[in-house]
Design a protein around this nucleic acid. Sequence first.
DNA 1: CGGATACTTAAGTAGGTGCTTAACCAAGTG
DNA 2: CACTTGGTTAAGCACCTACTTAAGTATCCG
Lengths: 86, 86
Amino acid sequence: MVERLTLGSASVSELAKPLEMSLPAVVQHLQVLEASGLVRTEKVGRVRTCHVVPSALRQAEQWITERRTTWESRLDRLDDYLKEQS
Amino acid sequence: MVERLTLGSASVSELAKPLEMSLPAVVQHLQVLEASGLVRTEKVGRVRTCHVVPSALRQAEQWITERRTTWESRLDRLDDYLKEQS
DNA sequence: CGGATACTTAAGTAGGTGCTTAACCAAGTG
DNA sequence: CACTTGGTTAAGCACCTACTTAAGTATCCG
């Protein structure tokens, strides 16, 4: 869903179409995405248009990178352990 | 729990002690760890001794590394997108 | 106005996870 | 042998997630 939105803005039903899911289910996903700040939505007339927030994506990127690096150091320690054993 | 086991073998109740959990709960965790091949256990008398399987740990390491690299490439593409926007 | 479209709200449900308690069995100990 | 210890089995429960259906509301179009 986020992937779809990075390709450009979309309405709720456009998002739902390729997603074998009912419309309310899509809206629920959208609500958590909006609450997290990752996407912003705006209702014009009766259609709600959604798009990602680049800065939030940057933050998410940073967050993931941090976790990754802690895992990398864990794996390094794991390596040390495995070398001890062999 | 795995962390504890990398420090050396342990019995079920030794594993349970620092883990505010009932014994059956610990055994359940142990069952999935053993089913996954990550630990091996052996019962002698009435005590079951558990230890990690180094080669499985290696496999897990490799698995994680693979996921990490796919995420890295995803993040690279994300970077490209963000640069387009700014 | 009347109907179709684009959501929205509310309520409920299936399935899964991570425990728990209770009852049990088998191995060691005095 | 009786008691304790270490583990096992079975059943069940609380909570959560990811949906669903049904019934609305609001806008647009002819």
